[in-house]
Design a protein around this nucleic acid. Sequence first.
DNA 1: GCCGTTTTCGGCCCGACTGTTTTCAGTCG
Length: 583
Amino acid sequence: MSTNAELERIFDEMAKVLELTGANPFRVNAHARVARLMGDLTYDIATLADDPRKLTAIDGIGDGTARKIIEFVKTGKVAEHDELVEKVPRGLFQVMEIPGLGPKTVKLLWEQAGVTDLESLKKALDSGVVEKLPRMGAKTVQNIRDSLAFAAKAGERIRLGVALPIAEAIVERLRAVPGVTHIQYAGSLRRGRETIGDIDILASTTDENALFAAFTAMPGIEKVLVAGGTKASVRLERGVQVDLRILPEDSFGAALMYFTGSKEHNIVLRERAIKMGYRLNEYGLFPDDGDAAPHKRGVTPVASRTEQEIYRKLQLHWVPPELREDRGELDAAFQDKPPTLIELPDIRAELHAHTTASDGRLTIDELAAEARRRGFHTIAVTDHSKSSIQANGLNEDRLRAHIEAIREAQSRIKGITILAGAEVDILSDGRLDYADDILALLDIVVASPHVALKQEPGKATARLLAAIKHPLVHILGHPTGRLIGKRDGLHPDVNALAAAAAEHDTALELNANSLRLDLRDTHIKAAVDGGALIAIDTDAHCAEHFDELRYGILTARRGWLTPPRCINTWPAKKLHAWLKKKR
DNA sequence: GCCGTTTTCGGCCCGACTGTTTTCAGTCG
Ligand SMILES: Nc1nc2c(ncn2[C@H]2C[C@H](O)[C@@H](COP(=O)(O)OP(=O)(O)OP(=O)(O)O)O2)c(=O)[nH]1
Ligand SMILES: [Mg+2]
Ligand SMILES: [Mg+2]
Ligand SMILES: [Zn+2]
């Protein structure tokens, strides 16, 4: 495991133990924030450990954390972490995952009912000791029982590509309910995160009862979890939670801001509001009169209808939802000159696609027709190379014939440029799967790792750098090789890859397939900052795969990508000239 | 534990829902 990943785990565990032992919540949060930070880094934190000032320059890292990071880099452990984890049975971490059980209740169960893990919790519930505890009653016990059965699935996140179609179907269904004036999905889905914890839907309506009734009566609902005056939550049979929040139409902008989040972005905005003499909540931006819940006291908001108005009153530019992560979007980095982020219609070319020659389902003709139908000026045929045996990769003879077939197809098909290319394997030592004389025959070369995806970070970086520096390679395909929720993939130093890619004019791929999204959002940001070009490709193996482009665009926007830095947005002439430079 | 164009100490977002409570703690979004 990498230093960053180890430190992420260490600080996460410290946060959990502190929470369970009743520490100051802000101290708990500070640790959780460090853990999140470590997970987001695109370089090895150890490279900063020679000087504490380099560490404390990072927002959220103070003297104490800097000391712990340096200690870890030197000794491989953090003494305070070791002491803390001794204090609490590890099984309690799982108990904490149960919906409805927070630190206070778990502490109580542990200290007064001897609960140390899920097993002992079950026993304590059965024996009746839990019900005798303070603030515990029959209903609470039954709720814990229900949630316990669901404990394993509670923390799971679903892929964007799975969640988005479900959300769109629910929104369309509820839009038809009489009285509904506004309805849209919000939360991590609107922000385009690669995985989604639940589906959040915001609506305004003239008939709340009708909407709640329709919501809780949808087919496929396993359980209604919450049902109040302004919000309801259900769990679908497939384990996904859906939250519906209803707010007045007058408040829709404030409501959308609140429900889109992220939580961290919301908190920074609310702190800013306080400093400016306001109070921000989901009903609007109010003048601060020192009391809570201004919306209930008839206070008139200074802004509430649209997101734009609220950001403006806070003296901020409107922030695209994908950027609302407290990753600099409220700082000068964004606010001084808001970049125009890439959009779906900007994409004019698909530069990574497979045909029946390897493991695709479309012929060359069908692939070209599909790309043309989508309005692209260029499609690259990039079938697998010889080492990818399971994918029916092409040996040199088959590749030569394939190139001929592509040229022949181009002679018949008008309205789109068909490039003869390959997705060549990057072997574990960084060499490519075809010799240079073969690669030189191709209009475009995508080089991708497919095997040895558990290599240690140093080796992985060297391997990918070799491909980036190869004079015949145009694009580094799905650089980490991860499959979301299934395979971790490589952990290269992405900052180093970006620097080399910029120097050698090689594009880094953002593979848009929702299982991959590789490079991921934080990597794209690092690549953009490092001056590298990005290629957004669907890696299409069939016609439907072209539809995954939207997930690539969302991820690209989360990485602050602008059209000029994405080669798929370029006009044909510019793109083709760029490809020819390496021939 | 972190942080600072009014601060190096004293804040740190704000509201809805539930169950158990007779006035609100705990959890969640
Ligand atoms: N102000 C504030 N807003 C919050 C808080 N927690 C959640 N929200 C808002 C912002 C979130 O994006 C939105 C939906 O909450 P979720 O728990 O579903 O989070 P989100 O969708 O961002 O991520 P997820 O993928 O569901 O884990 O509600 C909070 O503690 N304070
Ligand atoms: Mg959510
Ligand atoms: Mg939610
Ligand atoms: Zn491919």
